[in-house]
Amino acid sequence: MEAKHLMQLAIILDCGSISQAAGKLHISQPTLTKNMQTLEMQAGGSLFTRSRHGVRQTALGGMLAREGRAIATSVWAAEQSATRFGLGMQTELRIGVGPLVASLLMHTVTEALLRDYPSLSLLIQVDTPYRLFEKINDDELDIAVAPTVISASQELDRITLFEDRLAIFASRHHPLAGKERIEIDDLVGYPWVNIATYAKFEESPVERLQKAGLKQVNTHIALAGDATICLNILPTGDYLSIMPERLTNIAAPHYGLQSLPVAADFGERNMHLWYPPALAGDAMLDAVARAFMETLETATAVPPA
C-alpha cells in the first residue's frame, strides 16, 4: 500500500465526495478513483459505498482512513519542522501543559526561553495530564508540565517545579467570602464550575469534593482544555470551583477572586516537569525547569509595602 493512497482515502471520507476530494488534492477525479481501486485491491475489500448523498465508509475503509490521517499528521509535522529550520529555528522543543499553566505562566516562560535560546522553536500543546503523557510516549511531545496522574506517568522521569494544594475559589462578593471559617456542609447548594472533569485516570473535581465530605455537588459548568472561561465566570455569580491554590492566586486579584477558608483537605496538586528517561541530562530540561520556577516566584512575590 502507498501512504499517499491512505491519505487520499481519509480526505475522500472526510469530504464525503470523490469529486470534492479530487479538488482538494488538486488531482483529477479519474486518477483518484483509480488510486482507490488499487487500494481496494490491495486491502482485499470495499473501502466505501456510493450513493446520491456521497460516499460512506465501510468498516475496512474507516480503519485504513485512520492510518491515513495519522500519516498526514506526521507529514504535516515534518513540513513544519523543515519550515522552522529554514527560518533559522534550529532547535525544536515540544511542550505540553495543562490549561491553567497555559493561561497563567506559559507566555512568560516562553519569553524567557526565547530570550536565552533565540534559535529555539517551541511547539506548545494544551491538554489533560494523561493525554500529555500519552503524547510523550508516542513521541508527539518532548516534555510535559503536569501534576501526577496514577498509572499514566510510570514510564517517565520528573523534576518537581513547585508544590501546591487544591482550594475552593469564589468571587470576593460571594456570600461565603466574608467568613473566617467555612465548614464543608456550607458549600452545599452553590453551583460549581469544574476544570478537567473528564481527565482520564485522575480524580475529578467532584470526586475530590466528595472525598472531603461534600455529598452534594451541583456541577453547572464543566470545562476541558480551557481555564480562562472558569476565571471569567466565577466573578459573575455564586459559583465555586476547586483549583490549585498557589497557581490560581496569580490570577485571583485580576479576576476579583479569593480562596475560601474551608475546613477540609482537598489534597495536593504539585506540579512537575515530566520527560522520557532518554532526555536525562539534557541541558534544555534544566532551562525549562528554571524558567517555570523563576516565573512562578516572580508572579507570586509579595510586592513591597
Rank of each mutant, 00 (worst) to 15 (best):
Q154G: 03
D238E: 15
Q154M: 08
P175Y: 05
K200D: 14
D185S: 15
N232H: 15
Q154H: 12
A199G: 13
K179W: 07
N137K: 15
A167V: 05
E134K: 14
A212V: 06
T228F: 06
Y198S: 15
I150V: 13
A199T: 15
L231Q: 05
V193F: 09
E155T: 14
I195Q: 12
D138E: 15
R165Q: 12
L223N: 03
E134R: 14
K211M: 09
A224I: 11
D157Y: 08
K200I: 12
V145M: 10
A146C: 07
L214P: 09
E163G: 11
I233T: 15
P205C: 02
L214S: 08
K200R: 14
I159F: 05
A212F: 07
A167K: 04
L240Y: 08
S171T: 02
C230W: 02
I136W: 03
H220D: 15
T197Y: 07
N137I: 13
S204V: 04
P205G: 01
Q210L: 00
F169H: 05
I159D: 01
L209H: 02
T197A: 13
L223R: 04
N232C: 11
L161M: 05
S153G: 14
P175G: 03
I168V: 15
N194C: 15
P235G: 11
S204P: 06
L240V: 04
R208E: 00
E183D: 15
G213I: 04
I229M: 12
P147E: 02
F133Y: 12
L234N: 12
L209S: 01
G213S: 11
Y198F: 12
Y190N: 07
A222T: 10
I184W: 06
G213R: 06
F201C: 10
V217E: 09
V145H: 05
E140Q: 15
S241R: 02
L223H: 03
L240C: 11
D164M: 01
Y198C: 06
D142T: 03
H220T: 09
P235W: 07
V145R: 01
E180Q: 15
P147S: 01
L214M: 05
P191K: 12
K135E: 10
L209P: 01
F162L: 03
V206L: 07
A196H: 06
T219W: 00
D138K: 10
D139T: 11
E163S: 12
R158P: 00
E207S: 07
K135D: 11
E140C: 10
D157L: 10
K211H: 11
T148I: 13
L209K: 01
W192P: 08
Q154N: 11
L214T: 10
I150M: 13
E140L: 13
E163H: 10
